[in-house]
Design a protein around this nucleic acid. Structure first.
Lengths: 168, 168
DNA sequence: AGCTTACACTTGATGCTTCAACTGTCCAGC
DNA sequence: GCTGGACAGTTGAAGCATCAAGTGTAAGCT
């Protein structure tokens, strides 16, 4: 069996699969515990927090967080109910809806980011070690090119966020 | 912002986050399309297919697929309804339930594995390239040690499967 | 034995994600 | 200026995951 993969490949793949299972769960757990947020909803808030004026068309936001418009719409509905995001029609383009990060939403991001960033550092950055960070970058880059040849994914904070202000 | 991470670290992390989002989705899509299975339910079947006599206690199976017992129980219920797995009490230990891969389940795994393995090869193994496979292995190993210090994860097929027979 | 604790599950409710269908808007061509 | 198609979003139903609570069994203590 597994003539499909060599022993070496198989070993690496099993570990990769395990990481794909456990890492998102661990990061979700931290965010859920400390902020009551999903990784995905946090990502939405963080993306908005970094965008110009903290407003963005839904469809642009969707592509930045690599989600369907449908998923984003549901999530933004919830974030809206919590008062972190508001929706408004786009002047000059009737079919566009803009999502805006409210002040409360901004506070939420600012309060949440450090803890999340620390967890990312602990579980990924420090685990990998400084010498291997460039390897990680190269490998994930290679995989991404297969997954998303179009090359969206350009911007995607997650941790970066906590824009000190908007300039920067 | 992002004094949390250096530019280099941040870049690597963003890519990693993107891969964590897109790769499971891509693999799920292939399995769903070709076999009507979730990555997770496929993993359960594959694990069973490689185990001795294709039977295993639920709790052992749970740790092998890194899931809670609760999650596994729900999934096995569905797999049982489809006739791919059966449950039976464990003689000699009243609180253990054994999950057994049925013949139909075995056929399902055999039919599904090649296509899935090919997708894994295409999206991960070949994308990374032979020279970097060992880097991938080292990096995921390092992350895993943080995520799961206890060090389960030992066995975990995913692709390997399609045991030609049970030996080897 | 009788009691307590820990284990190995199962179940039900809740929430998020996905999918398909639907609404409303813009644009192109006739 | 009307019509057809594509685009931008929303919505509701269905499925899977997670969490909290519950059942039943084993083991240890007294």
């Amino acid at each position: 069996m597994a003539d499909w993969l060599t022993a070496e490949e198989q070993h690496a793949w099993r570990r990769t699969a395990a990481v794909m299972t456990l890492l998102p769960a661990a990061l979700d757990a931290q965010l859920q515990r400390d902020a009551g947020l999903t990784q995905f909803s946090y990502l939405v808030l963080a993306m908005l927090s970094e965008s110009h004026d903290r407003v963005m068309p839904m469809s642009e936001l969707a592509s930045m967080v690599s989600s369907s418009l449908s998923r984003l719409s549901h999530v933004v509905s919830r974030l809206e109910q919590q008062g972190w995001v508001s929706r408004e029609p786009c002047a000059g383009n009737g079919r566009v809806t803009m999502a805006r990060l409210t002040d409360a939403g901004w506070e939420k991001v600012v309060a949440t980011a450090p803890g999340h960033a620390a967890e990312v550092r602990r579980l990924v950055i420090d685990a990998v070690g400084p010498e291997r960070i460039t390897d990680l970058d190269a490998i994930t880059g290679a995989i991404l090119r297969r997954l998303d040849p179009a090359g969206r994914m350009r911007a995607n904070p997650m941790t970066s966020e906590v824009p000190p202000a908007r300039e920067q």
